[in-house]
Nucleic acid binder design. Sequence first.
DNA 1: TGACATTACTTTAACGTTATAGTATAAAGT
DNA 2: ACTTTATACTATAACGTTAAAGTAATGTCA
Lengths: 337, 337
Amino acid sequence: MSLNDNFNDKVATLRDLAGIAGVSVTTVSRALRDKPDIGLDTRLKIKQLARQLNYHPHEVARSLVLQRTNTIGLTMSHLDNPYYGQLSQEIEAQAAKAGYSLLLTIASSTIEKSTDFLNRKKVDGFILGPVLAGQDVSGLWALRKTGVPVVFHGNIDLPEMDTVIVDAETAVCNAVRYLAERGHRDMGFLGRTRNNLILTLKFGGFQRGLLESGLQLKNEWVVETRGELEDGYARACALLQQDKLPTAVFCHNDLLALGVLHALAERGMRCPDDMAVVGFDNIEMSAYSNPPLTTIEQPVERIASELVRLLSDRISNPAGEREQVVLLPSLTVRKST
Amino acid sequence: MSLNDNFNDKVATLRDLAGIAGVSVTTVSRALRDKPDIGLDTRLKIKQLARQLNYHPHEVARSLVLQRTNTIGLTMSHLDNPYYGQLSQEIEAQAAKAGYSLLLTIASSTIEKSTDFLNRKKVDGFILGPVLAGQDVSGLWALRKTGVPVVFHGNIDLPEMDTVIVDAETAVCNAVRYLAERGHRDMGFLGRTRNNLILTLKFGGFQRGLLESGLQLKNEWVVETRGELEDGYARACALLQQDKLPTAVFCHNDLLALGVLHALAERGMRCPDDMAVVGFDNIEMSAYSNPPLTTIEQPVERIASELVRLLSDRISNPAGEREQVVLLPSLTVRKST
DNA sequence: TGACATTACTTTAACGTTATAGTATAAAGT
DNA sequence: ACTTTATACTATAACGTTAAAGTAATGTCA
């Protein structure tokens, strides 16, 4: 059997409907969209006809004439990290609610590819996920130059753009102070410490937290690393080789922290007794690890809804004042501290 | 400062280029696309001009005339489940490699919304994730009727569509037999057992595995549940109340299994000694749980590449023979059994 | 009764491309 | 020298829609 035997019929267009109904294309178009100046009987007849012929408006043609696609682009990466998955899902939901479809870009996450994408695909707006920006913030100017509204989500403020910022610096600082209050004086850090404006922010908060708690930064407990589970595990294994160990470690994200927990368990070390662990994101898994993870909770729904709201606003008012939303994530305390 | 001060210039069109270059629109179009019948000097001049004016082809206009959008739709849900996140990411990568952008639908995952989406957005093809199909396979006919190529991914064969099938039934059966060989005679099942053609398949494999191992199905150890972490935890808690416990449980997916592991650890029960646990998917986390999870590994990259390949083939040859790819996932043995 | 609205349409042009057919100019063949 | 052929273009129409301007056929009012 060939799959398309039954589908030789082309899709119906306004012209087809107009021909059958014996009216002009414009009349059909206006009738279906409930525009005025159409007689009641004609309108009903046309609508019924549209249903019969299974007519659906051709959004591409519509986009061309209306100069809008009702589509927004999303650059996201590390979708295998549940936090980004959840965030993407939430953004899709919010976008759909606002009448937008989501065009996803993951692998092609370079500034050049993104701008080309924007220029060609004619998305109405663009949400720039936390990953792309890192190293080369200046390159973002190219994105802005496309004239397409862009909203950025990350940890730092980009003065040229609408932004939804999570104040990770303060959140991490608070987490460190919390640990200090619980008696921890020797703390380690796993994450980015350099070469990335955005990702190093947590390290800044870590340093400030120590300072404000009157504690010293110990370089041998500061581990430069990517943010995957395997990194957390491997880095922890290396860290645990040292003679003197910190009593608590802060991890750049939950995956890292879960990797650390695994390393501890594997060595028969007790968490939090032998070493406390704090993560960042509060992915669902963190509530079900052994032990459950103390972590800084990202307000995912809020981030998603603010992103879409800002973008919608900017699309309908491109010349308006730049807007910036700052969210302060809060510490969720569980058994790992 | 208003954001759009510097961007009063409209984007350049072929017409603009033609006007400046003093040639026809057609010539510009052909020059840029390296079509023949254009003089070398004109071609170079036009290309340089395009670069100067930062010209980018208007894909919407192009789509309209070419009757293809170079975009494929993806219906996926539960993106907060890392397995689906990873799968989506992989599909995006494969699609990009094949020259397609991905239009994502999550929340709107009903057949009606999907068909409307297909009809309107004019995607070149559609990948139907494992979630949508479940209950109402007959409704998929509506998708087919749109005439848009659809490739389905799931555990059962849909005779009317190209499919990439993971033979979960056999895989689960094999896992059960593996458990039986390791001496387990009392096994439990957490997952879907009814009302869903696709999701109940694993239960079928479970039953067959028991049968082929000469074991009995114990209804009190069969737990009907959704597939979230919290379900795994809650269902395990309930199960562990029983007087007689299974020595091993199979879980519909890894999240469930990780929830079960958490319940066990919380009660001070040892895994696998007190209870062995097997999952399905092999998400990254499963290698780093405590204990690491024995699980059935989904061949994610293979699934993604086959999906995109099948869809590309179908797009370029809509009338060809239906294709079906069956993948047998294999058991990854870790410490939880 | 004649100017003027109102109603319910139609016609035309446009969005930015690409494909097809047509054309002027120069070079080549017999 | 005169048709033929190749080269490098241009003109036109089309994709399916919407907006804007135009137009008949009624109805309304003074």
